[in-house]
Design a protein around this nucleic acid. Structure first.
Length: 837
RNA sequence: GCGAGAGUGGUGAAAUGGCAUACACACUGGAUUUAGGAUCCAGCGCUUUCGGGCAUGCGGGUUCAAAUCCCGCCUCUCGCACCA
């Protein structure tokens, strides 16, 4: 008998063709079936699929295939986050057009994904750079503008001189552009903002609804990023009130320390500074200080080693309750864009203020003191930031500081000098990009009417494709006359089109909803499809998107809900989130410069897609990083070969049974009973591991164990008709359980087993509890908690029998010699622990 | 500094409070083979006077029983960081 070698290339091509021809994974919305929406973060079409993609999508594909086999109507789509800067850079470098480069990459990467056999519904594919997609985004923009959730503001922006664009704070990493690593500069520009801060509270609060479904660390990161602080804003009077400003507002989380204020510090950029300096003899010195701080590089200014520096302005503020004169200082540690850009200085109870006061010899006034202790401002070596009772605080003396927060805030409110206030670290989202390859912002500037939104019926405002990218990287849009010149929909006069485009994070903030009805032409979404499919049940992607993308998508979901594009109860887009780990090489990221990139295409050519998928899932649990190992993938390949040979060599004995189809009567011999028991245990283990936990590595290990057992038992089993049924059933179980991971080879063997319907449409098997039990069990025998032996007892043996078995064991007896038994702990079917002294 | 997560063989890793190290890699031996490779079978934490003893970052605690729970440290990774 000659055996056939496992040939992954031929098998995989055969099944991929069949899946495509038969549209196996296309799904339609079916109200009678429970739905399951599994989504992997869509890729940027950078050119080629890398190992990180392979892993990400392999995880998603196993979930999708498993859920399908569990009877769910599964939506598993794929698309392209197709706008963005790299296309422009590549276009310059390769003398091509961003669109051409992007679409070529999409075609290439689509083919690579198909070669991996992922079960996507390709009929739902989207690309965000198509007008059919971004027109809806332009419509959202107009509706948000109407609602006041989009606004324009001139602000100092992070400007990347190399990319010629504004960067969000989160795109500046250590003072460098996140894309090109250029040193970021500050530049004043008028930009479009989305009012994400209006949703700060809801974004924070709803995080509790995601507990359990999202990793704790992602929730923590979002919480941190939103950065809510509860406190009070307090108005300090000015000794010499300015005509435009009678008072100075500060924000504090510690209104309880109000009586400890001995100075007030402003950010050097504070708008009041110039007014304060009026008439001050040393005004020029102060101005020089402001200039110096402003010119400081953001990187240095944000560094943690920056020395606290300040300068007295010559002006005084007045304490809101005592009227005491308080010197006004400027401090380099006060942030202009947080709170009000002014802080009250309470050196006794704030470490920064303490250091500042010691450096500039400002008084330290203790107003909170721990019980049974007396603090002295003069001798304090560090700020006391703990809880305590108020002292030297007028009528508030004796209150706990927690109670005083409210009491003092109330008193300020009564006098009209302050109120409870909340601050967020979160900033509004700047969506303006001075780039070409993005969705145009649908507004114009009319000579007569000023800023005018484009009429919705004129959407999309199409990005012109007949332009040439500029070598210097600047957007060609402002000089594209056919684009810029337009007609004002209000007065019919001449107008100039906005040439900024939208941040690509806008596209990725709603793409998952478009998949529900991707070809809908009259509206962004089909309401019914949306209600059926959303929210996403399982979202899978890299943790690098833990803040930006996920926060923006959550925000956008709430906004689209509030402008009635989403159902009123759709507030969170992703019920469950899995952040998969990275694929490393030699302990670090794969990179071109290190020359250690493992190309998926090479691996597929060498081992086949099934092996690559198997290794990615077996090497580590999905959340964890793992190091690519060339010998590890050999192991995966060896296992598939082992499965293949098992079927090939036993083929003449195998019957076309389905998983778990052998009966208890078939399992007549001890060997057969054991194999059948292992079969059902494996089903149980896989159900647990593939369920909510997504422990693919242990599920695969369980199937490996079953295969090992089949290798040892096959000779005995094939000898009888009953045995063959047991063998066939167990082997069908192997294929069924493994099929979400290695679908091609499993389908092939399934067919060779004689089945006429594909494995894809099979149900996941259910285990029979009775089949998993054993007549005789191995029981651990312990003396004082230490393992001293094992013994065989009948399953379900009672306490007495177990004690008997333990006490008569020779090893146990040896350890009990000369001791008195105090207690015997019996865990049925597990162990006996004899406590002796 | 704050927040989150992790620390187990030579390696990737496994273990509802109940036999620590499943499964795999690497390594070793055997079978097969002219040979190598492939394949199949077996061994594989450290130590030992072969009775055992010691092992899950370190130190305590709870428990009949702890990798797992509690307290205190150490190290590493990630995120945030002068946020008033």
């Amino acid at each position: 008998m000659t055996y056939e070698r496992y040939n992954p290339q031929a098998i995989e091509e055969k099944w991929q063709t069949r899946w495509q021809d038969e549209r196996t994974f296309a799904c339609t919305h079916d109200p009678d079936k429970p739905k399951y929406y599994v989504l992997e973060m869509f890729p940027y079409p950078s050119g080629n699929i890398h190992m990180g993609h392979v892993r990400n999508y392999a995880i998603g594909d196993v979930v999708a295939r498993t859920k399908r086999m569990q009877g769910y109507n599964v939506l598993h789509p794929m698309g392209w986050d197709a706008f963005g800067l790299p296309a422009e850079n590549a276009a310059i470098k390769n003398r091509t057009h961003p669109a051409q480069w992007t679409y070529a990459n999409i075609a290439n990467m689509r083919a690579q994904l198909k070669r991996l056999g992922y079960s996507y519904d390709w009929s739902r594919e989207i690309a965000t750079c198509r007008p059919e997609y971004y027109r809806w985004e332009q419509m959202f923009f107009l509706r948000l503008l109407e609602k006041g959730l989009v606004y324009r503001k001139k602000a100092a922006q992070n400007w990347c001189p190399s990319c010629h664009t504004v960067l969000a704070n989160e795109q500046v990493i250590d003072g460098l552009c996140w894309r090109c690593d250029s040193r970021v500069e500050q530049k004043d520009l008028t930009q479009w903002f989305l009012k994400i801060t209006a949703y700060g509270d809801e974004l924070l609060q709803d995080l509790t609804r995601l507990e359990g479904g999202w990793p704790d660390r992602v929730l923590a990161m979002q919480r941190n990023w939103i950065g809510k602080s509860i406190g009070a804003s307090i108005v300090f009077g000015l000794e010499k009130p300015a005509p435009t400003m009678a008072g100075l507002t500060v924000f504090t989380t510690r209104p309880d320390t109000l009586f400890g204020v001995t100075f007030v510090t402003l950010a050097p950029e504070h708008p009041l500074v110039e007014t304060l300096l009026d008439g001050y003899a040393k005004a020029d010195e102060v101005r020089a200080f402001v200039q110096r701080i402003r010119n400081m590089d953001r990187l240095d200014r944000q560094s943690d080693t920056l020395e606290k520096e300040g300068i007295f302005t010559g002006a005084y503020a007045l304490h809101p309750l005592t009227g005491q004169r308080l010197p006004l200082w400027l401090g380099n540690f006060v942030l202009a864009d947080y709170g009000t850009g002014a802080v009250m200085g309470v050196p006794a109870h704030d470490q920064r203020d303490f250091e500042f006061a010691r450096k500039y010899d400002l008084p330290v006034r203790v107003v909170i003191t721990p019980e049974q202790e007396r603090l002295e401002g003069a001798t304090l070596t560090a700020a006391y930031t703990g809880a305590g009772l108020l002292v030297d605080s007028g009528t508030f003396d004796g209150l706990t500081n927690e109670a005083a927060k409210k009491a003092i805030t109330d008193e300020l409110a009564r006098q009209g000098k302050g109120k409870g206030s909340t601050q967020f670290r979160l900033r509004d989202w700047n969506i303006s990009r001075q780039r070409y390859w993005g969705a145009p912002i649908p507004v114009m500037y009319c000579e007569r009417c000023g800023l005018v939104p484009e009429d919705e019926k004129n959407l999309p405002v199409e990005l012109p494709l007949d332009v040439h990218v500029r070598d210097d990287g600047r957007s060609p849009l402002p000089e594209t006359k056919t684009f810029v010149a337009c007609t004002c929909p209000r007065c019919g006069g001449r107008a100039r089109r906005e040439t900024d485009t939208m941040d690509t994070f806008v596209e990725s903030s709603w793409y998952f909803a478009r998949y529900a009805s991707p070809r809908q032409e009259t509206a962004p979404f089909d309401a019914e499809a949306l209600r059926y499919w959303l929210p996403v049940d399982q979202y899978i992607g890299g943790v690098e998107h833990a803040i930006l993308h996920l926060l923006y998508a959550r925000f956008f979901t709430k906004v689209l809900r509030d402008i009635s594009f989403y159902p009123p109860d759709l507030s969170e887009p992703f019920n469950n989130l899995l952040t998969q780990g990275m694929v490393l090489k030699d302990g670090g990221k794969m990179s071109k410069s290190k020359g250690n990139i493992v190309a998926p295409a090479d691996m597929i050519a060498k081992y086949g897609a099934d092996t690559v998928r198997l290794f990615c899932l077996f090497a580590a649990p999905p959340e964890r990083d793992f190091d690519w190992s060339d010998s590890g993938i050999e192991g995966a390949s060896r296992f598939i070969g082992r499965v293949w040979r098992l079927f090939d060599e036993e083929q003449e004995y195998l019957l076309p049974l389905k998983a778990c189809q052998s009966s208890a009567e078939d399992a007549a011999t001890p060997e057969a009973r054991d194999v059948r028991r292992r079969e059902h245990l494996t089903v149980k283990k896989c159900a647990e591991d593939m369920g909510q936990r997504f422990q693919f590595n242990t599920a695969i290990a369980a199937v490996m164990e079953l295969v090992n057992a089949l290798y040892l038992a096959r000779e005995t089993l094939r000898a009888s008709q009953d045995g063959r049924r047991v063998l066939s059933s167990a082997m069908a179980t192997v294929l069924t359980l493994l099929s979400p991971v290695t679908p091609h080879v499993c389908e092939e063997l399934w067919e060779r087993l004689g089945h006429t319907t594909p494995l894809t449409t099979e149900s996941m098997p259910h285990f029979d509890l009775a089949a998993t039990t054993q007549d005789m069990l191995t029981i651990a025998l312990q003396v004082n908690g230490k393992l001293r032996g094992t013994t065989q007892v009948p399953s379900g043996a009672d306490r007495n029998a177990l004690e008997q078995a333990a006490m008569t064991d020779t090893a146990v007896q040896r350890h009990l010699a000369g001791r008195t038994v105090r207690k015997i702990v019996v865990v049925p079917d597990k162990l006996v622990n004899i406590v002796a002294s």
